[in-house]
Amino acid sequence: MNKIPRRIVTGIQSGKSVIIEDQPVANAVEHFPGLIISDVWNTQQTPAGLDFETPIPNTGFPQTPKNGTYFRYVVVPPDKDLGIEWKKNEPHPMMHQTPTLDYIIILSGELYLIMEEGETLLKPGDIVIQRGTNHAWSNRSNKPCIQLAVLIDASAQG
Score class of each variant (00 low, 15 high):
Val18Trp: 14
Val18His: 13
Ile19Trp: 00
Ile19Gly: 03
Ile19Asp: 05
Ile20Val: 12
Ile20Trp: 02
Ile20Thr: 02
Ile20Glu: 11
Ile20Tyr: 03
Ile20Ser: 11
Glu21Thr: 00
Glu21Ala: 06
Glu21Pro: 01
Glu21Trp: 01
Asp22Ile: 06
Asp22Tyr: 13
Asp22Arg: 09
Asp22Leu: 02
Asp22Glu: 14
Asp22Gly: 05
Gln23Asp: 08
Gln23Arg: 13
Gln23Gly: 06
Gln23Cys: 04
Gln23Lys: 08
Pro24Cys: 04
Pro24Tyr: 06
Pro24Glu: 13
Pro24His: 04
Pro24Lys: 11
Pro24Arg: 11
Val25Ile: 06
Val25Thr: 10
Val25Leu: 05
Ala26Trp: 03
Ala26Leu: 09
Ala26Glu: 09
Asn27Ile: 11
Asn27Glu: 02
Asn27His: 09
Asn27Lys: 03
Ala28Gln: 12
Ala28Trp: 08
Val29Phe: 05
Val29Cys: 04
Val29Tyr: 03
Val29Asn: 07
Val29Thr: 09
Glu30Lys: 02
Glu30Pro: 06
Glu30Cys: 07
Glu30Leu: 07
Glu30Asp: 14
Glu30Gly: 02
Glu30Asn: 07
Glu30Ser: 10
His31Glu: 10
His31Phe: 14
His31Trp: 05
Phe32Lys: 10
Phe32Asp: 07
Phe32Gly: 07
Phe32Asn: 04
Pro33His: 10
Pro33Gly: 10
Pro33Gln: 08
Gly34Cys: 12
Gly34Tyr: 13
Leu35Val: 11
Leu35Met: 09
Leu35Tyr: 11
Ile36Arg: 12
Ile36Ala: 04
Ile36Phe: 13
Ile36Gly: 00
Ile37Lys: 11
Ile37Phe: 12
Ile37Ser: 13
Ile37Leu: 12
Ile37Gly: 05
Ile37Glu: 05
Ser38Leu: 05
Ser38Gln: 03
Ser38Ala: 15
Ser38Trp: 01
Asp39Trp: 12
Asp39Ile: 15
Asp39Gln: 14
Val40Cys: 10
Val40Glu: 05
Val40Thr: 15
Val40Met: 15
Trp41Val: 00
Trp41Gly: 00
Asn42Ser: 15
Asn42Gln: 12
Asn42Arg: 07
Thr43Glu: 11
Thr43Val: 02
Gln44Val: 06
Gln44Ala: 03
Gln44Lys: 07
Gln44Phe: 02
Gln45Cys: 03
Gln45Pro: 00
Gln45Gly: 04
Gln45Lys: 12
Thr46Arg: 12
Thr46His: 10
Thr46Tyr: 12
Thr46Met: 15
Pro47Asn: 05
Pro47Arg: 09
Pro47Thr: 06
Pro47Ala: 10
Pro47Cys: 03
Pro47Phe: 00
Ala48Cys: 05
Ala48Gln: 05
Ala48Thr: 04
Ala48Asn: 07
Ala48Pro: 02
Gly49Glu: 08
Gly49Phe: 04
Gly49Arg: 07
Gly49Ile: 03
Gly49Leu: 14
Gly49Ser: 11
Gly49Thr: 01
Gly49Asn: 08
Leu50Gly: 02
Leu50Tyr: 00
Leu50Thr: 00
Leu50Glu: 01
Asp51Glu: 13
Asp51Trp: 14
Asp51Val: 00
Asp51Ala: 06
Asp51Met: 00
Asp51Phe: 08
Phe52Tyr: 15
Phe52Lys: 06
Glu53Ile: 11
Glu53Thr: 13
Glu53Ala: 06
Glu53His: 01
Glu53Asn: 04
Glu53Gln: 01
